[in-house]
Design a binder for these strands. Structure first.
Lengths: 189, 189
DNA sequence: TGCAGCTTCCTAAAGCTATTAGGCAAATGA
DNA sequence: TCATTTGCCTAATAGCTTTAGGAAGCTGCA
C-alpha cells in the first residue's frame, strides 16, 4: 500500500484551495479525502474533526491576509496607507473568496486570541495614527473601517453591485475618498 | 391518524423562529420536522427542498425588515431618517439573528428581483434625497451605507466589539454621526 | 540486517441529513 | 355515501461525520 503522505498542513492547504474553488461552506472532510484519493477515515489521524479543519483554514487565511496587509503598509502613511490596506483586503477577498469566507468563520475565544486577527486590527490602528484621532474616537474609527471593508466586500462578493452602474471599482475608490475625508474631519461631540 | 396541519407558511414561519434560536445555517428540514413532531418526508409536500425552505425564510426576513424600515422612515428626513433606518437594521439583526442571517442568504436572480431587497434599497435612496448628492455619487453613497450597516452588524453579531471599550452602542452612534457628516460634505472629484 | 513499535491508512459500522417513490387514511364535496 | 384529493406515513437510497479496531509501511536501535 503506497502512502499518500498526508499531513495536517497539506490537508489544511488543500482545504483552502478547495474553499476557493467550491466555497468555504462546501469544504468537507469527504471532499478533501477525495482530493487526496484516500478514504475519509484516514483524515481523522490528522484532523480532530470537520470543525477543526475549518478553524485551521480560517487561521491560515487570517495569517495570509495579515501578511499581505503588512507588506502593503510598509513605507506608507495617511491616505496612501488607507487605500493600500483596503485594496489588499478587497483583492484578497476577490482572488480567494473561499479563504476570505473562512476569515469570517467564528473562532472560539482562544483560537481568536491566537489568530492574526489581532495583528490586522493593530495595523488598522497604525493607519489611523496618520489621522488625528484621540481615544475613544480612534476605536470608533477602527470599527468604522472594519465595517466598511467587511461590508463592502461582502456585498460585492454576493453580487450586489454587479449588473448595475456605476462600476464597483469606481464606488470603491469614491468610498475610500469619503472615508479619508471623514477621518480628517472626524466630527466632535 | 391526526393531521398536523402543515402548510408552507407555517413551516416557513417556524423555520424563521428556529433560525433565531439555533442559527440560520442550522435550520434543517429534519429539525423542522421534529418541531412539528412529524416525519421528515412529510415536509416535502409543502417545500420543494432544503434550499427552498431557506430561500423562503430569507424572503420572509427581507419583507419584515423592509416593513419595519418603512415604518421607521415615515415622517422623518435627513439625519433623523438616517439614524432611524440604521437603528431598525441593527435592532432587527440583534433581536432576530437567524432571520438577519437569512437576509444575507444568496438568492437566485429571479427570487432576488421579487424580494423586498429592492424596497430596502429604494428606501436608502429616499434617505439620501435629504442630502445633496447627484448621480453617480448617490449610488456610491447607497453602497457606502449598505456596507457600513451590513459590516457593522456582522462584526457586532460575531462578537467583535464585545468585551472591549468603548461600548458598541457608543461606536454606533458616533459612526452614524460620521456618516451624516460625510454625506453632508461628500468629497467632489 | 532484523525486528519492535509507532504511524498511516484501511475496513466496518452507526448515526444524521436530504430526497424520492409509493401507500393508506382523513378530509372534501357532489 | 362514495369518489377524489390531500396529508402524512413507511421504505429505501445516498452522502457526510465520526469512532473502533486492524494491517501494512516506516524508523530506529541492537
Amino acid at each position: 500500500m503506497v502512502r499518500a503522505g498526508l499531513t495536517t498542513e497539506r490537508l489544511v492547504h488543500a482545504g483552502a484551495e478547495l474553499a476557493d474553488e467550491v466555497g468555504f461552506e462546501q469544504v468537507t472532510v469527504s471532499a478533501l479525502a477525495r482530493r487526496f484519493d484516500v478514504k475519509v477515515a484516514s483524515l481523522y489521524s490528522h484532523l480532530k474533526n470537520s470543525q477543526d479543519l475549518k478553524t485551521r483554514i480560517a487561521l491560515l487565511a487570517l495569517e495570509e491576509l495579515a501578511d499581505r496587509a503588512a507588506d502593503a503598509l510598509a513605507g506608507r502613511a495617511g491616505k496612501d496607507a488607507l487605500t493600500a490596506f483596503a485594496d489588499v483586503y478587497r483583492d484578497y477577498a476577490r482572488t480567494h473568496p473561499g479563504r476570505y469566507a473562512a476569515t469570517r468563520h467564528p473562532l472560539d475565544p482562544e483560537a481568536a486570541a491566537a489568530s492574526a486577527g489581532r495583528r490586522h486590527s493593530q495595523m488598522t490602528r497604525a493607519i489611523l495614527r496618520g489621522y488625528d484621532l484621540a481615544e475613544p474616537d480612534e476605536t470608533h474609527a477602527v470599527r468604522l473601517l472594519g465595517s466598511v471593508f467587511h461590508g463592502y466586500v461582502g456585498l460585492e462578493l454576493a453580487g450586489g453591485f454587479s449588473h448595475s452602474a456605476p462600476d464597483s471599482q469606481e464606488s470603491w475608490t469614491r468610498i475610500l475618498d469619503a472615508l479619508d475625508s471623514t477621518l480628517r474631519n472626524w466630527p466632535g461631540d
